Amino acid sequence: MTADASVTFIGNATTLLRVGAFTLLTDPAFGPAGSRAYLGYGAWTRRLRDPAMTYDQLPSPDLVLLSHLHADHFDRAARRALPATLPIVTTVQAQRRLRRRDFTATGLPTWDAREWRRDGQLLRVTALPGRHGPGFVDRLLPDVMGSLIEWEVDGERRLRLYITGDTLYRPFLSEIRQRCGEIDAMLIHLGGTRLLGLLLTMDGRQGADLTGLIRPRLTLPIHYDDYRVMKSPLSDFLAECRDRSLTGVRPMTRGETVELSSVSPR
């Protein structure tokens, strides 16, 4: 029985999570540098960096966590590679569209959860709130969700991981810690994505705001320089965190694996 947890950074918001007996893939996008992603309303962006791995180089996942249905999170290469029978946990809105394409999708309303059990282990995924755009603009964008991944072995908590999804910082995100308790690790989506001058993902300042709000033991930044629409480099976030004396922030390189088992108290 595997009793360890780790995350491998593949690129953009795509990661491979090994959580004990379970393997999860997040926001799969495997298109090469130079490929284009459609963002809706006639807007396209171009990928600048290759992913560290292709889908066929990965172990077979048990499920996919898809924060929302934008092409930089579920691109053409992923649609071709993923088996139609592979379970996808996503928003209710994305579920409808994915099922029309014959994918096996489950949509979770905010705060709803699904559980899987194997070899005395429990994996629970809870949908968390998020807002992709400011004000009324959010209604024009795909619904987005964060995810809380909880892992237990023989009834003992081993990991509580928050994946932010493409949310902006908003004070209502404090409800996550209030409802869910202390967060061991956080995968934070950054990049300061801008379209028509509008901020659509957290920049360095907002990312530091959320890190200070959630106060995870370990913060792993992702989703910050893969596409042209990303305007806030990782260095902005790291500088903001240093200025605020926020600890536990650890950048990852593409292809790197970071152990998560040790961040949860025993």
Rank of each mutant, 00 (worst) to 15 (best):
Y224R: 01
T8C: 14
E115L: 10
G135A: 07
H73V: 11
D143M: 08
G107R: 12
D56T: 07
S232T: 09
T15K: 01
G40A: 07
R139L: 15
L24T: 04
L140H: 09
V125W: 11
L200G: 05
G42P: 02
I163S: 06
I188G: 04
L24D: 06
D236F: 11
P61L: 02
R254W: 08
T15G: 00
L210N: 07
E182N: 12
L82Q: 04
D138F: 00
L190M: 11
T257W: 12
L128A: 11
A21C: 13
A3T: 15
S261P: 03
D62K: 01
R139E: 05
F136S: 14
S60R: 15
D72C: 11
I149R: 06
L86I: 06
D56C: 03
A13M: 03
R79L: 12
I188F: 14
T85D: 10
E256P: 14
P251W: 03
A33H: 00
G40R: 11
C241F: 00
L190H: 13
G20R: 08
R79K: 09
N12F: 13
F172K: 12
G42F: 05
G42D: 05
D243W: 05
R228I: 10
M230V: 00
A77C: 09
P129S: 02
D203P: 14
P109G: 08
A105L: 01
G197P: 14
T2P: 10
T167D: 01
D236V: 11
T106H: 15
M202C: 04
T54C: 12
L98A: 06
S35T: 14
W44R: 11
L58S: 12
D4H: 15
E115C: 07
L195Q: 14
P129F: 00
V19I: 15
R244Y: 07
L210V: 14
A5R: 07
R124D: 09
E259K: 12
F22A: 10
L159D: 02
G133E: 02
S264K: 07
P265H: 04
A113H: 15
S6R: 12
D72E: 14
L161Q: 09
M230F: 05
L98H: 06
R97V: 06
R157G: 08
P134I: 05
V258A: 05
A185E: 12
R117Y: 02
L173W: 03
P87I: 09
L246Q: 13
S35L: 12
T26R: 10
G181S: 11
H70N: 12
S6Q: 10
S245G: 02
P142T: 05
G191Q: 05
L218K: 03
E240H: 10
Q178G: 03
L161G: 09
L246R: 05
H189C: 10
R170F: 00
E156C: 07
G133Q: 08
R228S: 13
L213E: 13
T90N: 06
T106V: 14
L98D: 02
L86S: 04
A105I: 03
L220F: 13
G204I: 04
H73W: 02
D225R: 01
L98R: 06
P129G: 02
L140M: 15
F103T: 04
R139H: 12
L238P: 05
